[in-house]
Write a protein that binds this DNA or RNA. Structure first.
Length: 777
DNA sequence: TGAGAAACTTAGCACCAGGATT
DNA sequence: AATCCTGGTGCTAAGTTTCTCA
């Protein structure tokens, strides 16, 4: 594990300016996401999120859609030659050298982290099938792996990539078409027309199985080939051991009090009481919805005749205290005891942690069945506190390869709800969410699996493709701002907001969910028109995270929003004629496969690419990492990725301030000493009354400089800490930033990749590691 | 065409191991 | 050795998109 503490961002900030500046943004100069344009305070219940300083984003702001179009945001001022094969920013060394250098840096040295490779993946020794990953360049393509390989190939220009593409060219001769597009033409569009495809079209998890078993099975090879060509078939063989159920409840026998009297509870009743008792010190425990929901569900288990009737008379403290004791006991365990426990857990997990997909050993993501508990919804969720009952094998549907051994049901005498063999889906098991019966919980492969990697790559390829269409899309919606067709006009304005503010699509929500909105579901009270052309957005988005942002928009957009809201009452939708289906249907007309969320990926990745390539200089490693973190921060702000301020934040800042003060006092003292030393005078006495050792002016100058740099580092650390206290950097890194941008940048600038990506993220992005250093998003 | 189901991605937070500091 | 602090990871809630059916 590497130490990231030392990598704390040390970028410059101009906090006051950042807080007060109003970013001018007129209609002709607007190709940056507005998320980073306005001084912005996003301070939900938890935090204040500062918008970046002008200087940090002005390169994004300065692009001119009309004069310099067709290029992606932030890149428009760059010479065309900077893009494509002979990028002018590239390192002077040739690609091979860079690649070799990268390998040296990442695999060698003192780091214990190496780039994950398919070859490092553990395999079943007795498995005679091809064990290497389909995408592994060393793999001799079998008919099947060649097919998969074709799906994995991307449009990168590296030598290794082109070498990899060879089999694909043989396969379909479709080499120049971006992956997403390839999928589009061979997949979605054809599957609807192909009569054979209809046979394997799934109706529901169960009907799909029947289809495959019935028709597709009979049509065997031909049908399978068709499926594969269509990209519907996700695997050929799938072997796994099912899911790991939580251990049964162990009663503790500690009695809670009712009206001050100990109460006897059955294990089942005690289990639920304990779930509530251990949450005593959380915010949930003081929320009425939570306690009401808990009590209602608990009462059902207690039965009407039970002595416990009213929540107010319940005292769960004895159980809570028992819980604290247990926690303490666990804490007091010796290192060896903890280690033994851990090893036991690992041993138990091992059976369920792996699946074999087409003969390749892949990690399973969430193989543990969710244990029972009280539902912890986010925000003001109407169901918070409800009992999430225990999931039994009879609730669980298993998906496994035909002919593969069916996982043994963990409870004797019980059986799985169903066993299916659906190779058009990637889930290994699912059950219905006990809180919301119509929702399902799926067990998928881990993010490091090639199946997930493949779809990840397709996602970024689609976002890259948007780069080629974005100009037309912007021209298109700008034209429709003044459309007389209200539906058209609403689509145009909504698309503009999604593009510029990186808003989410905003599906309709039920009454039994937290009241949050996205673009299509914005309500009139979420938008305030501030003349002449500013809009203030204030709403709770996904996870009830507050989005608060004031932006200057194109005048027609401002007028349109004003018009949409006119005469409407609180609670009514701004975009009354719009929903995500209509919006996405329209987007698909503009670019195949385009949906609202692609804009978020596009804007995030293009922002990272632009900042990294514009701002990275020939600097120290630490400084280069700082550039990366600053870019990462920009993206997190654009996407409104927030986190709660840690409980200890204030005390940490106070401590840092105290330390800085101490160091400053030390420095001042040394400066006095220096003056004395220069004059040849004795240095006098220290605080303890001891005579100070005489030092030469040179030594003192060195000491002062050392203290000074420590002060500077601490001040920067503190600023960074303060700045990032509400910004979550991880979410964008994991979900929105094309890892190839990062890998290419690391190669070009000799930054070890593990300084940016943790071990887990490295494993997730294994598919991106061999990217050419010249790669640009 | 719209509703609802199914499948998958995106999200923040709790917890914990392990390094740094006292 | 005890405590603090941090980043990494697992967990699971909450989204989006796609598919199916009436």
């Amino acid at each position: 594990m590497f130490n990231c503490a030392a990598l704390q961002a040390t970028h410059e900030v101009c906090e006051e300016e950042a807080m007060s500046a109003v970013f001018m943004f007129d209609g002709d100069d607007d190709d940056a996401p507005l998320g980073c344009q306005e001084s912005n305070t996003v301070d939900g219940d938890k935090s204040k999120l500062k918008r970046p300083h002008v200087a940090e984003v002005d390169h994004l702001m300065s692009d001119d859609a009309d004069s310099d179009d067709g290029k992606p945001i932030g890149l428009r001022k760059k010479a065309a030659s900077e893009r494509g094969g002979s990028a002018s920013y590239e390192d002077s060394e040739d690609n091979k050298t860079l690649a070799a250098r990268f390998l040296r840096v990442t695999r060698g040295g003192t780091s214990s982290v190496s780039i994950p490779s398919s070859k490092d993946k553990p395999v079943l020794p007795n498995n005679s099938n091809a064990i290497k990953r389909p995408c592994d360049s060393n793999n001799q393509p079998t008919s099947q792996s060649a097919l998969k390989k074709a799906k994995c190939s991307d449009g990168t220009s590296s030598a290794s990539a082109s070498a990899k593409r060879e089999p694909r060219a043989k396969d379909n001769g479709n080499d120049n078409i971006p992956l997403a597009q390839t999928r589009q033409t061979t997949g979605e569009s054809s599957k609807r027309k192909d009569p054979l495809a209809k046979n394997i079209e799934k109706k529901s998890p169960s009907s799909s199985r029947d289809n495959i078993k019935g028709k597709a099975k009979k049509n065997s090879q031909l049908s399978k080939t068709t499926e594969a060509c269509q990209g519907r078939k996700k695997w050929s063989t799938l072997v796994h051991n099912g899911v790991l159920s939580p251990p049964p409840y162990k009663p503790h026998g500690v009695q809670m009090l009712y009206n001050g009297q100990p109460v006897t509870l059955t294990p089942e009743q005690e289990e639920v009481a304990t779930m509530f008792a251990v949450m005593k010190d959380t915010e949930y425990a003081s929320k009425e919805t939570f306690t009401n929901n808990f009590f209602n569900d608990w009462r059902n288990i207690l039965g009407t005749k039970h002595v416990v009737k009213k929540f107010q008379h319940c005292d769960f403290t004895p159980i809570y205290e028992w819980h604290l004791q247990e926690k303490e006991k666990k804490k007091q365990m010796t290192t060896e005891e903890k280690k033994a426990l851990r090893e036991e857990r690992v041993k138990q997990d091992d059976k369920f942690m792996w699946a074999f997909v087409d003969g390749v050993k892949e990690k399973v993501g969430n193989f543990r069945v969710e244990p029972p508990g009280l539902f912890r919804g986010r925000g003001e969720h109407p169901k918070m506190g409800r009992l999430k009952r225990r999931i039994r094998p009879s609730d669980i549907t298993i998906n496994i390869g035909e002919g593969a051994p069916v996982p043994v049901c963990p409870i004797h005498g019980e059986s799985w709800k169903e066993v299916k063999h659906d190779n058009t889906v990637t889930w290994l098991a699912f059950w219905n969410d006990p809180i919301n019966q119509k929702e399902c919980k799926y067990v998928f492969l881990a993010a490091s699996s090639s199946l997930k990697g493949q779809s990840d790559k397709e996602k970024y390829e689609k976002a890259r493709k948007l780069k080629d269409h974005i100009h037309n899309i912007r021209v298109n919606y700008t034209k429709d701002f003044r459309s007389k067709d209200q539906a058209k006009k609403q689509i145009a304005v909504a698309t503009y907001l999604i593009d510029k503010l990186a808003l989410r699509a905003g599906n309709e929500k039920d009454d039994d969910e937290a009241d949050t909105v996205g673009c299509c579901t914005l309500k009139v009270e979420n938008v305030t028109c501030l003349p002449p052309n500013r809009l203030q957005f204030d709403f709770l988005g996904k996870d009830s995270i507050r989005y608060l942002n004031t932006v200057e928009v194109k005048l027609p957009v401002y007028q349109a929003i004003k018009e949409f809201c006119a005469g409407k009452h609180k609670g009514e939708a701004v975009f009354g004629k719009l929903d995500t289906n209509k919006l996405n249907a329209h987007l698909k007309d503009l670019m195949p496969g385009l949906t609202a969320k692609v804009f978020r990926t596009y804007n995030a990745s293009i922002t990272l690419d632009t900042i990294l390539n514009k701002e990275t200089e020939d600097a120290t490693l630490l400084e280069k990492i700082t550039v990366y973190q600053r870019a990462n921060k920009e993206v997190a702000i654009i996407c409104n990725h927030q986190r709660a301020v840690s409980k200890s934040h204030d005390s940490q800042i106070t401590k840092l301030n105290e330390k800085i003060d101490e160091l400053k006092a030390l420095r001042d003292g040394l400066e006095v000493d220096l003056e004395k030393a220069k004059k040849g005078k004795p240095l006098g006495y220290d605080e303890d009354g001891k005579r100070k050792r005489n030092l030469t002016p040179e030594v003192l100058v060195n000491k002062i400089s050392s203290v000074e740099s420590r002060i500077q580092k601490m001040e920067i650390d503190m600023k960074t800490k303060e700045e990032l206290k509400t910004v979550a950097l991880g979410t964008s890194k994991i979900n929105y930033l094309d890892p190839r941008i990062t890998v290419a940048w690391c190669k070009t600038h000799e930054v070890p990749i593990e300084k940016i990506f943790s071990k887990t993220i490295l494993a997730k992005f294994g598919w991106a590691m061999d990217v050419d250093p010249d790669f640009r998003f």
